[in-house]
Computed example of a mutant assay.
Amino acid sequence: MARYTRSEPFFPIMTLVVVGFIIVGFGSAIAARGDGYVPPPALLLHGGVTLAWFALTLVQALLIRRANFGLHRQFGWASLGLAGMIVVLGYNTTAVAMGNPEWSIAGFDPVGSAIFPFFDIVTFAIVYTLGIARRKDREAHKRLMVLAGVMMMDPAVARTAIVLLGAPPLALLLEFAILLAFPIYDWRTRGRPHWASVFGIVLFAVFFALRMALGGTEAWAGFAGAVF
C-alpha cells in the first residue's frame, strides 16, 4: 500500500479555490441586489450546509496531511450527513426556483433552467459516491472528494463571471481550467493523469453537453414536471 505523505498541498488548495469562488460568486450576486437584501431562509440554509461540507472537506485533507487517519474516518460520517443534506436542499432550492417566471439560465425558461442545478446535484452525487466507494484507494479518494465539490461550483462560477467579469461564457473556461489543474498536477507528480482526474473532466463535459442539448426539449420538460 502506498504511504501517506505530508507534502501534498494541492488538494487543500483546490478546495480553497472552490470555496473562494462560492464566496465571491454568491457574495457579489447578493451585493448586486442592493442594500437590505437578505436571501430566503431556505437559501441561507442551503448555502450554509454547502459551505460546511467544503470546510469539512478542507479539514479532512489537512488531517490526511498530518497523518491523523482516525479522526479523518470519524469526520467521514459528518461528511456523509452534509452531503445528503446538500442533495435534499439542492432539490428543494431548484423546485422553488422553477416557480419563479423570471428565472433563466443560458436563455432557458424556468423549466429548462432547472436542468443546470439538477445536473449539478447528480454529478456531485456520482463523484461523491464513487469517492466513498473508493475510500481505501488513497489516490482516487482524495481526488474524487475534491472533484465532487468542483462538480457543484457551477452556479458560483457563473455568478462570478456575470457580476465581476461581465462575460457569462467565461464561466465555462474557468471551470475547465480548474478541472485541468488535476491532470496537470498528476503529470507533475506521477508522470501520467490519474483516472479519477480524467473521469471528472469527462463527466463534467458530458453533462454540460446534455444540459445544452436537453434543456429546451419537451422530454426534459416532462421529466422536470414529474420530478419537481
Rank of each mutant, 00 (worst) to 15 (best):
G48D: 06
G48P: 00
T50D: 02
T50K: 05
F54N: 11
L56F: 10
L56P: 06
L58A: 10
Q60M: 13
Q60E: 06
L62K: 13
L62Y: 12
L63E: 04
L63S: 03
L63K: 03
L63A: 04
L63Y: 00
I64R: 11
N68M: 03
F69M: 14
F69H: 09
G70E: 00
G70D: 01
L71R: 13
H72A: 01
R73N: 00
G76F: 02
L80V: 03
L80S: 09
G81N: 12
G84R: 10
M85F: 11
M85L: 15
L89Q: 00
G90L: 07
T93R: 09
T94E: 13
T94K: 12
V96F: 09
A97E: 09
M98E: 08
M98D: 03
N100G: 02
P101T: 04
E102K: 08
S104T: 14
I105C: 04
I105L: 15
A106L: 13
A106K: 12
P110Y: 02
V111T: 15
A114M: 08
I115C: 08
F116N: 06
F119I: 00
D120Y: 06
I121H: 05
I121N: 13
V122T: 02
F124K: 12
A125T: 13
V127Q: 10
V127Y: 06
Y128G: 04
G131A: 08
A133Q: 07
R138Y: 08
R138A: 13
K142E: 08
M145S: 06
L147V: 00
A148N: 06
A148G: 10
A148W: 02
G149L: 02
M152C: 14
M153W: 00
D154C: 02
D154Y: 12
V157S: 06
T160N: 10
A161Y: 14
A161L: 14
A161C: 13
L164A: 09
L164D: 11
L164I: 13
A167F: 15
A167P: 01
L170D: 07
A171P: 02
A171V: 04
L172F: 15
L173M: 12
L173I: 14
L174D: 00
L174I: 15
A177W: 00
I178Y: 07
L179S: 08
L179D: 08
F182V: 09
P183T: 11
P183D: 00
I184V: 15
Y185S: 09
W187R: 15
W187I: 14
T189P: 00
